[in-house]
């Protein structure tokens, strides 16, 4: 038997084989971008990149927890649209009211998901599909199908537009704090470990006396809240509540989570790797824009989607190979 207190790096890498690929890809892409494009590492690009992608990181974090329990939350994109409209109406009261208000609005829809999934025993895919349609309809109804302009007089838009020290937007700071909190919840608290255990085996978890229903309620409400936060960032960053935004965002979130090595079947996941996954997907877009900016080639938005899809495919393919190889070494 080996000394149990020594840290075995080789074993650590093997054990975390699923998430190694995403970090590697992230580093390679950043290095490539910084060398190839002049303003890639410039303050403007960094801050606008982080500001925009903070929304995707937020919803990916919530999605990561839902997926770890073996569930899915398809409603996040619509919840972003819905809460962006809600907070546009709240904007005259300032960010101190709109931020909690938006998060609460998202959590309210998350509670509906939790109720469907836990109390009514509706499969998460169906339940969140229903709230996806419901929230989208809600957003259109309360906005009257219009983009709702925010109050520019209050401090509301500062949240989405101003940078701290000229580099870090407020939005990414809030999302970073959220990520650290969720990392602690997952790694250090009993609710976090219950979430992982549920994905590994719901019956077994219930049998061990762990609060399965409470943990499931937690993940759906959390996911709603994260989408609510993204809605606040959207409205304040673009100066408007946008009922038509958010289409397909749930798929971006799922992709980020998967790229981050979280098993779609649940039971295994990582908060940092999910953040890395979201950044990686954002980077692909960012770099395509730079490539267009060089004026040599021009890739339309539609082709960008195709390229992004291909990229996602390659990353996932690489990852499944990495984890298969490490599984083989373990066996």
């Amino acid at each position: 038997m080996l000394d149990q207190n020594t840290f075995d790096l080789r074993r650590y890498i093997q054990g975390n084989g699923q998430s190694m690929g995403v970090w590697l890809a992230l580093i390679v892409m950043i290095a490539f971008g910084a060398l190839r494009y002049d303003n890639f590492a410039g303050a403007y690009n960094i801050s606008s990149f982080l500001n925009y992608n903070s929304m995707f990181i937020a919803i990916a974090l919530g999605m990561c927890f839902v997926i770890m329990t073996g569930g899915i939350d398809l409603s996040v994109g619509s919840v972003v649209a819905f809460t962006s409209v809600c907070v546009a109406y709240l904007s005259p009261y300032g960010i101190q009211v709109a931020l909690p208000g938006g998060i609460l609005a998202g959590m309210a829809i998350g509670s509906i998901n939790a109720f469907f999934v836990i109390a009514m025993r509706i499969p998460p895919f169906i339940a969140t599909l229903a709230t996806m349609l419901g929230a989208k309809g809600g957003a259109l109804v309360i906005s009257g199908r219009q983009t709702i302009s925010v109050d520019w007089g209050s401090n509301f838009t500062k949240f989405g537009m101003n940078n701290v020290g000229g580099l870090l937007p407020w939005s990414i700071i809030v999302v970073a704090i959220l990520a650290v909190m969720l990392w602690i919840v997952l790694e250090k608290t009993s609710i976090g470990r219950t979430v992982e255990a549920i994905g590994g085996g719901e019956d077994a978890t219930r049998m061990m006396g762990l609060p399965v229903n409470r943990a499931k309620a937690f993940v759906y409400i959390l996911s709603g809240g994260c989408a609510g936060l993204a809605g606040v960032i959207l409205a304040s960053g673009f100066g408007a509540g946008q009922p038509l935004e958010g289409v397909g965002w749930e798929l971006s979130a799922i992709a980020s989570v998967v790229v981050g090595g979280t098993l779609l079947t649940g039971g295994l996941g990582s908060v940092p790797a999910t953040v890395a996954g979201a950044l990686l997907l954002g980077l692909v877009f960012n770099m395509l824009n730079f490539e267009n900016g060089r004026g040599v080639i021009s890739i339309s938005a539609y082709w960008q989607m195709v390229i992004r899809g291909l990229f996602l495919f390659v990353v996932i393919l690489l990852q499944s190979r990495v984890s298969r190889v490490s599984a083989k070494q373990e066996a």
């Binding site: 992982e196 255990a197 590994g200 085996g201 019956d203 077994a204 978890t205 049998m207 098993l263 039971g267 295994l268």
Partner: peptide
């Protein structure tokens, strides 16, 4: 397998 271990943990 089904009711005891959580395999990935």
């Amino acid at each position: 397998k089904a009711e005891g271990i959580v395999p990935e943990m």
